[in-house]
Structure formats: C-alpha cells, structure tokens
Amino acid sequence: MSKSNLVSQFTNGLWAENPSLVMLIGMCPTLAITNSVANALTMGMATMFVLVCSNLVISLIRSQLQAHLRILVYMLIVATFVTVADYMLQAYLFTMSQSLGPYVPLIIVNCVILARAEICAAKKGPVTSFVDGLGVGLGFTFSLTLLGVIRELFGSRSILNYQILPDSFEPWVVMVLPSGAFLTLGLVIGLVNYLRSRKRVEA
C-alpha cells in the first residue's frame, strides 16, 4: 500500500465521504447530542475509538468471515468495543457519560460503523482499515463538533460552557431543541454542498 493511497483514504473520510454531512449516515447522534460542544466532542471521540478498533479487528479476521455470519460477527465486535467505551466514560468522565445518557450504548447501531466495516474493513488490509477508521472517525467528530459549536453558541451563548456571547443576547432555545438540530444540519449541509459544487466547477 503506497503512501499517497493511505493519505487519500484518510482525507476521503474527512471530507469527500464525511459520514454526517455528505453520506448522511449516523444521523441519530448527529441530531440528538450536538446541543453542546462537549457532548459532540465526546460522542465523536467515542465513535472514533469504536470505529478504529472494529475496523482493525474486522480487517484482521476478514479472510475467516463466513458471508452469512458476517453481520453477526460485526455486531459482536462493535458491541464489545462500545461497552468498553461506555465503561471507560462512566469511570473517567462521569458527568459527560450522564449527559450523553443512552446515546453511548446506541453507538452499536450507528450505521457509520457498519458501513465502514462493509465498505472498507472487510475488503482491505489492517493498515488501510485503521487509517480509514481514523479518517472517517475524525470527519464524524469534526461535523458533530461543528454543529455543536453553532448550536451551543446560539442556544446557550457559550462554547464548552465558556460564555462567549454577552448576557444581553437572548439565547435561542430552539437551537438546543431537536428542531434546531434539523435546521442547523440542513443549513450546514447546504453550505457544504455549495462549497463542493464550487470546487467541482473550478476543477
């Protein structure tokens, strides 16, 4: 595997195949927990951890996979790593894990992970899969954090609980509500599409 291929595999997940802004997968956490930057960052990191580990393990055992049992094996692997991540969060980031609530265990059914297992890990070598997991995971974290920044800034006038906007700014409650998540996501996707279309015209 050449170096440039690895780089393109990495950047692919970051931008061209960004899970929540381009592929529109993994919508549940994207909409549900991006009401604050801290939540979004933690969620993104936890997902990235699970993604990298599951990609690596699946890639290592890919030659032994029985076609009809593969989903079962994926779920087994993903569930294990999610449980580990959940316990770690509860032990070392207790308040964070409380505010994420059921969304950490729900990473198991996040289709970003299953999609990468099918698209990449089951077909390519461990190094490529690892890099792919890292790229997609970072892309996911990035888009979640972007939404989190916008929503927390307008919804609670702060970023990472640090107040940015003055007290005279009346917080827009809608931004921390689910409806605000849909609005923000729609507008951000619109912006991303605009940027991508401009790039295509230039190219």
Partner: peptide, 10 residues
C-alpha cells in the same frame, strides 16, 4: 413557529 420555539417566554 421559529420564534415560538426560540423564545417561548417572550
């Protein structure tokens, strides 16, 4: 509706 959800008290 946007205002109603953004500023329910106002």
């Amino acid at each position: 509706a946007f205002l109603m959800t953004a500023f329910p008290v106002l």
